[in-house]
Design a protein around this nucleic acid. Sequence first.
DNA 1: ATCAAAAATACAATCGATTGTATTTTTAAT
DNA 2: ATTAAAAATACAATCGATTGTATTTTTGAT
Lengths: 339, 339
Amino acid sequence: MNINKVTIHDIAKALDINSSTVSRALNDSPRVTKKTKDKILKVAQEMGYQRNLLASNLRKNVTNTIGVVVPRISRHFFSSVIQGVEETAYQAGFSVIICQSLEQLEREKNILETLAANRVDGVLISISMETMDYEHLEGLKNRGIPLVFFDRHCNIPGTNNVLIDDFKGGYDATQHLITKGCKNIVHFSGPQELEIYKNRFRGYKEALKKNGIAFRDEYLISSRLMEQDGIDNIKKLLDKGIVFDAIFSANDVAAIGAIKCLIENKMKIPEDVAIVGFSNEPISTVINPTLTTINQPGFEMGKAATDLLIKNIKDENSLLQEETIIMESNLIERQSSQK
Amino acid sequence: MNINKVTIHDIAKALDINSSTVSRALNDSPRVTKKTKDKILKVAQEMGYQRNLLASNLRKNVTNTIGVVVPRISRHFFSSVIQGVEETAYQAGFSVIICQSLEQLEREKNILETLAANRVDGVLISISMETMDYEHLEGLKNRGIPLVFFDRHCNIPGTNNVLIDDFKGGYDATQHLITKGCKNIVHFSGPQELEIYKNRFRGYKEALKKNGIAFRDEYLISSRLMEQDGIDNIKKLLDKGIVFDAIFSANDVAAIGAIKCLIENKMKIPEDVAIVGFSNEPISTVINPTLTTINQPGFEMGKAATDLLIKNIKDENSLLQEETIIMESNLIERQSSQK
DNA sequence: ATCAAAAATACAATCGATTGTATTTTTAAT
DNA sequence: ATTAAAAATACAATCGATTGTATTTTTGAT
């Protein structure tokens, strides 16, 4: 039920002029005299005219819109990124469409289809945990839609990325625990197919190696890193009687689950088990004990990724060139690791 | 840089048929024979055709898209609502555009303009804390775009709403504190111009009255209810030497700030000050002490609001009729109020 | 007052898909 | 084989805005 059907043609008719003049007036073209412009703007206002962007974008073959796809909007890291994206995009005259895959590959594919069908000018994405084939992502590029990955990227050549050094993050977290005197450090990881989890795990192993600690297979536990996974991981460790005095979790949420479960099992944190998380979710400052974690500069990553994407959109030949920006991450020490 | 320029006309040319037949085939119209359809679908696939929704939507004057506007996507309550919205909308064949006003009226206005210009079929909104005039909201309805409010609604006649009973929420929270023996209950409220805060405050006053406790002006503190506001509120109370033994905060975030500040000031919760929040954010289960709060069924509200909106979209005359759905809210008792 | 140059505006095609109507092709009954 | 009815496909207008080109109007110099 569309009441407002005012088009530039209606305005043209009302003023007995041509619609092309109306269009030019509304776009403040120098080809229309100020007197005519004023007249048109006034009538447009009175008639309640509003540009139909569907028609405009169709004709111009540009939408000035970018899509940003994250696993979950409710994660603080991702909503920070989005805030950076929005700020940068708006300043550059772009609208932003926010989408969440909920960690499901099917949804991610659907989202990209819809964004492409709506002819967004570019896409920012942090892939889901189920994303192990990249057809849908390559499909976007083949359609000429620039794509920039942030945080959770993937291993295809010629992509643009804004990342942190996950290897270093994993290394720093683990080295910190070792420095605090921990010897038996468990690692909660995400799906090993994702680059970020591979790299955090590599960093973990490297720190062990540097300190002459042997890596043990049973210390690597991969999961979806939800709170319940943290709980389940601890239960599994305790059930199997595996000895451990520290955990490096590849995200904060699973670390929170672990803390809750350990406390329930009467273990002391950090005395019995020291813990380091990843991402610096706000909840890590509230839990007792507060959680040591690796901070990721979400807002800045969002800004950088958007800058890179817009550069891609504006530069016709950019689809061929590859660029990766690495942002600084840093360890934030809190109670959970203060042995 | 659009590489893919395949249109139905290209497909038509390749097969030496008319584009209208291609269009009908792609839409699975009974007017095209199966043999032709198969042929067209095959070529469309090969050529990498993808429907241009701008053109399609323009012609059909329908986008099958709804917009949902929340103050912040990072708030758990709102992201739950969004999840409910998405689930219901997708099942009904609608896409969802997620937008956040960041509590700014200017952004809210912009968002609604953009959504309207993009010809969304309907809008779901929970207004910002700055939204005190409703022109932009009425403007949408005047343009024939159905609008449904959820949670933070506003006082204009003929609207559709999905709410909780905020009066009851405020009453229950306050009565709970009184039952626990509190006599001097401070209320942290949001901007008094918003219906939900007015109603929660009315509930608070009514509970006091029912229990023969006089309301005191200095017990009402209005703010934007951010964490820092909770902290500032406590500082103000302590500075002024105002005596209080309980807080009913109109959201959890300010309550968290209050808890942090009270603990810093060596006060015991709940012994010295009992606290009840509002919305049941996940953080309320993690903070120490855990926070008693009023639970709002976000996911269900999202589903209900979307159902109502889609009913509005499908029913031509519905713009005139008013409907308000009240969902159940309930008090969740946790440590912060167990005197 | 005349006329070329400049300025303002009108005309018409276009973006890509949809859809009512017209035309062609097929089917089937005689 | 003929022909009317039915089925399949083609034609052309349309959605609303944009934009290159054509036309008209205005300006200003003579």
